[in-house]
Amino acid sequence: MDPTTGLTQAESRELENRLNKRQVKEFMNLFGNLVDNCFTSCVDDFTSKALSGRETGCISRCVLKSMATQTRLSERFAELNASMSAELQNKGR
C-alpha cells in the first residue's frame, strides 16, 4: 500500500519537499561512499602523486561495477519489499 494515502495535498507537498532534501543528502553520501570504496580498493601505491594507468582503469571499472550492483540490488529490493508488504496485508491489518 502507498503509505502517502491519508495525507492532504498540502501535506503531500511538504513531504515531497522533505524527501527531495533528503535525496540530495543521500546522493552526496552515495558519491562519497563510491569514492571511498574505489579509492581504497584501487589505490595503494604512493610512489607517485598521479594515478597510474592501472589505478585509473581500476577506478572506472569499480564505478561501473558498483553502479551495476546498486541497480541490481535496488531491483531486487523493490520486488522483495512489494511482496513483503503484500504478505503483511494478507495477514490482515
Binding site: C38, S41, I59, R61, L64, K65, A68, T69
Partner: peptide
C-alpha cells in the same frame, strides 16, 4: 558477493 579487485567492470 562482489570481488573487489575490479579486473572487470561488470558483474
Amino acid at each position: 558477493c562482489v570481488d573487489k579487485t575490479y579486473r572487470e567492470g561488470e558483474l
